[in-house]
C-alpha cells in the first residue's frame, strides 16, 4: 500500500508530537520528516498561544488494526519511535515542549486543538517547568568484578563422603554470602551515584531497571534514573557525571549516561507535574 492511496480526500488522522508555545519556523519544520507514511509536519494553533506540532497520516495505516499490527513488528516499532522523536525534536527548536506519547492521534485538527485547550493549565505549568532544562539518562550496573569461577561447582562437588558434602555446602553458602555482600555493596554505590547526581539536578525520577537481555550486560541494572538539569547547571552535572564514570570512585558499579534528552520523563501532563512519572512514588 502506498501512502498516496490515502490522499487528502481520504479520512485522515492527525498525529501529534508535542505541545509548545514557541513553534519552529515553517521552513525548518518542513525539512523534518515525521512518519514516513504521512504528510509534512505542521503547526496547529490552539487557544491561549499553545501550539501542537502535528502531521497528517493516512487512516489506513494508523487506525487501530493497522497500528497494532505494525507496532508488533520490531522494525516498525523502532521506525515509529524514531519518527516520533524526530517530530518532538523539531518542535523543540525554539523553546520548551511537552512531548506527547508516541502515537497520540486525533480524528482532526478540531479535536486536537480542543484537547489541548482543555488541558491548558497543566500544559502551561509543564512548559514553565521544563524551560531551559534537559533530561539526562543514567544507568548503573553492577561491575561484576568478582568472577563466579564457573568450573568451581563441578570440581568442588561432593565426593560422596559426609565430610565432602558438608564442605561443599559450606563453600556454597560462603559464596552466597559473598554474592549477597557484593550486591549490597553495589546497591549502596548505586544509591551514592544517585545522591551525587541529584545534587546538581532540579528533579530526578526512576524508570524500571532494564533486563539483562535488553541491556546486553551480564550484570544486573541497579539504577535506571533520569535527571532534570537546569541549563545553567549543566556543566556541574556533567562534571559530576564524568567524575563518577572516569574517576571510578565506586568500584562495584559501572555508570553509563546519555543526554541531553528532551525531558520526556518529566513531561507527564496526566498527573501532578511535581510528582514525576508514576513509578517514582512506588519504587
Amino acid at each position: 500500500m502506498s501512502a498516496s492511496a490515502a490522499g487528502p480526500a481520504a479520512p485522515g488522522i492527525v498525529c501529534a508530537f508535542a505541545v509548545t508555545r514557541t513553534p519552529p519556523d515553517p521552513a525548518g519544520l518542513a525539512a523534518v520528516r515525521g512518519h514516513e507514511e504521512g504528510g509534512p509536519l505542521r503547526v496547529l494553533r490552539a487557544d491561549g498561544g499553545l501550539c501542537l506540532i502535528v502531521q497528517d497520516v493516512p487512516a489506513a495505516l494508523f487506525d487501530e488494526e493497522a497500528l497494532t499490527e505494525r507496532l508488533n513488528r520490531p522494525a516498525d516499532l523502532e521506525r515509529c519511535a524514531r519518527a516520533h522523536h524526530r517530530g518532538v525534536e523539531a518542535a523543540a527548536g525554539r523553546g520548551p515542549v511537552v512531548p506527547l506519547p508516541m502515537a497520540t492521534l486525533y480524528r482532526g485538527d478540531l479535536t486536537a486543538a480542543r484537547a489541548v485547550a482543555a488541558r491548558r493549565p497543566v500544559l502551561e505549568t509543564l512548559l514553565d517547568r521544563l524551560r531551559d532544562r534537559t533530561e539526562w539518562a543514567v544507568k548503573v550496573h553492577a561491575a561484576g568484578t568478582a568472577p563466579e569461577a564457573p568450573g568451581d561447582d563441578g570440581a568442588g562437588a561432593p565426593t560422596g563422603s559426609c565430610d565432602g558434602g558438608r564442605a561443599y555446602l559450606s563453600r556454597v553458602s560462603a559464596r552466597r554470602r559473598e554474592q549477597r555482600g557484593a550486591r549490597g555493596q553495589a546497591l549502596a554505590e548505586a544509591e551514592a551515584v544517585d545522591t551525587a547526581l541529584r545534587r546538581h539536578a532540579v528533579a530526578a525520577t526512576r524508570h524500571r531497571p532494564q533486563s539483562e537481555r535488553l541491556t546486553g550486560h551480564r550484570t544486573p541494572q541497579l539504577l535506571n534514573a533520569a535527571y532534570l538539569v537546569e541549563d545553567a547547571r549543566r556543566a556541574d552535572f556533567t562534571a559530576a557525571l564524568a567524575r563518577l564514570t572516569a574517576g571510578a570512585p565506586h568500584p562495584a558499579v559501572r555508570v553509563e549516561a546519555s543526554g541531553p534528552w528532551i525531558p520526556y520523563s518529566f513531561a507527564r501532563w496526566d498527573e501532578d507535574p511535581h510528582a514525576g512519572p508514576g513509578q517514582e512514588a512506588l519504587s
Partner: peptide, 8 residues
C-alpha cells in the same frame, strides 16, 4: 528511546 516515548 522506547522507555521515554512509551513510558506513558
Amino acid at each position: 528511546l522506547l522507555e521515554r516515548v512509551l513510558d506513558k
